[in-house]
Design a protein around this nucleic acid. Structure first.
Length: 495
RNA sequence: GGUCCCAUCGUCUAGUCAGGUCUAGGACAGGUGCCUCUCACGCACCAGACAGGGGUUCGAAUCCCCUUGGGACUACCA
């Protein structure tokens, strides 16, 4: 089965594709939000449709405006900005659920009048006791329906003065069935469906009500969201039916997983999108990696652009096994993306990302050829290039290990020779200078590698670095000579 | 406990819907080698999986059933 727009099946030409991502502003912008956003965004793009960002801030105790801002910022960073959102506005707004209270109340009235919902006056304490009892008896939990059969007129009256909630009046007979785009038919017995609270005592709707009302009013044609929502779909389907609305398509994508296969969590993984940004990951790598979790391009190439993704993405072939987050592969992808950038562009990213330290842009462009192939994240640049700015403390221990078989005195002497040659041949080509250094090694009965290692540690401070001669040129011949002589002196034990 | 979802190399996955072209393909990670002044990059090669058991069929990774394993949900959170 395919949902590709040119395949002419399910979606047809008539219905516009409207997708959405509906996060709660209750914490750092989450990688799971980006994951779901990516699929929804791409599907809307591919079909010339619309992608909506709806803020589900009905939990007044946990929602924070700054978290909403962060979500917007994070999506923009990834290149997944919505067509309509609280910021941009749009035909079907407002897009912040806290601003849609009247709308929900109107629909709650409708449900109440039609007998699809009822007022419930049970206290949270009673509910907690009930749950405890059910758990102790190993019975399925759920509301016991104490207020279900209250006289509606009487309940309405009580409602004027008593705090209460409104619950969905689930018809416990029969079953609810729907076709999930990724999982086929799913059937759930209505007897197991709880009389869900739809309107909280603070007057705010719960997710279930707000979601159904908004998706309908906003014209959402396909709901792509995480699989954790599967168990509550029957409630949603019942609501669509109670309102007399057609339900949209459902596509429940897998949950991202920790190493131990539990649902991804910040205790076990970096889940904040800002963490990745601050760590020096490129948004295109982050997004490319996310796309690979569950979806795969049919061709060999696993590295692709957002545009490639739009061109090929089809929600119908997302695989449903929960993918384990593998940062190692992200690192690889990030390195690939870094290598594919021009030096100018990469330097710009380093500066814009705040990874440049005190390096000016033009200088970064100049030295980048030494580092670009060796970088996996933007943050690696400044530390790796530091030796070009200031004299490093040489890694004597590393040098010792790498030159075990070399006689320290010969090495020290050879380095002195090398310093001199680097001065006298300063204006010669790399090739000429390299040949000269090799000759020195031979004369002093050293392996070429050992001499180079000594010089490398002297000049760069470390045993793993960019090539020696370009580094010498960057550092400057005189400074390089000074570093080499200084290290040479340390090789010979005092006295 | 109940309900539901899921199950191919260590990891991400192709193949499953339309059974044979699969001695199961690719990528990351790992190993070996080449390149080489080190580290990377690049290139070549190696190793590595259909959870188990029943069925259906001439034929099953693919369809059915059971078992096992994993996960989610079970809030006046989303």
């Amino acid at each position: 089965m395919t949902l590709a727009p040119d395949s002419g099946d399910v979606m047809g030409d008539a219905a516009p594709v409207i997708t959405r991502v509906a996060p709660s502003p209750t914490g750092d912008p989450h990688v799971g939000t980006a994951y779901v956003a990516l699929f929804n965004w791409a599907w809307a793009r591919r079909n010339g449709g619309k992608f909506i960002l709806r803020i589900e801030d009905t939990d007044q105790s946990r929602s924070r405006p700054e978290h909403e801002e962060q979500i917007v910022e994070a999506l923009a960073w990834l290149g997944l900005s919505p067509d309509e959102s609280p910021d941009t506005g749009g035909e079907t707004g407002p897009y912040r659920q806290s601003e849609r209270k009247e709308i929900y109340h109107q629909y709650i009235e409708q449900l109440l009048e039609a007998g699809h919902a009822y007022r419930c006056f049970c206290t949270p304490e009673r509910l907690a006791d009930l749950r405890a009892l059910q758990k102790a008896a190993k019975r399925p939990s759920g509301y016991d329906g104490a207020c279900r059969e209250l006289d509606p007129a009487e309940a309405t009256q009580r409602g004027d003065s008593e705090t209460h909630v409104v619950r969905l009046k689930v018809d416990k007979e029969g079953s609810t069935r729907w076709n999930d785009l990724l999982r086929g038919d799913i059937v759930i017995q209505n007897a197991t469906v709880d009389d869900q609270v739809l309107l909280k005592s603070d007057g705010m709707p719960t997710y279930h009500l707000a979601n159904v009302v908004d998706d309908h009013l906003m014209g959402v044609s396909i709901i792509m969201r995480a699989e954790e929502w599967i168990p509550s779909v029957p409630k949603h389907v019942m609501l669509y039916e109670a309102f007399g609305w057609d339900a949209p398509l459902f596509a429940h994508v897998p949950l991202l997983r920790n190493q131990d296969r539990s649902k991804i969590s910040k205790r076990k993984n970096p889940t904040s999108l800002f963490w990745y940004r601050d760590q020096g990951y490129l948004p295109e790598a982050r997004v490319n990696f996310l796309a690979l979790q569950g979806w795969s391009i049919r061709e060999d190439d696993e590295e692709f652009s957002l545009q490639d993704f739009i061109d090929k993405f089809d929600p119908a072939n997302i695989s449903v096994g929960g993918p384990v987050f593998d940062l190692v592969k992200l690192d690889w992808l990030n390195g690939e993306k870094i290598r594919n950038l021009s030096a100018e562009e990469l330097a710009g990213r380093i500066v814009d990302g705040g990874f440049a330290g005190d390096w000016p842009l033009e200088e970064i462009v100049e030295v980048l050829p030494l580092f670009q192939d060796r970088m996996r994240t933007l943050s690696e640049f400044a530390p790796a290039a530091q030796y070009l700015k200031e004299r490093p403390e040489p890694d004597m221990e590393g040098l010792g290990k790498k030159t075990k078989k070399a006689d320290p005195e010969s090495l020290a002497a050879a380095m002195v020779d090398a310093a001199e040659v680097l001065g006298s041949l300063a204006d010669q080509s790399e090739e000429v200078r390299e040949t000269a250094l090799r000759e020195i090694a031979e004369r002093r009965d050293l392996k070429v590698g050992a001499l180079f290692m000594g010089l490398r540690v002297a000049v760069t401070g470390v045993t793993a670095s960019p090539p020696l001669l370009p580094s010498v040129d960057r550092v400057g011949v005189e400074e390089s000579q000074a570093r080499i002589l200084a290290l040479s002196a340390r090789l010979i034990p005092a006295g």
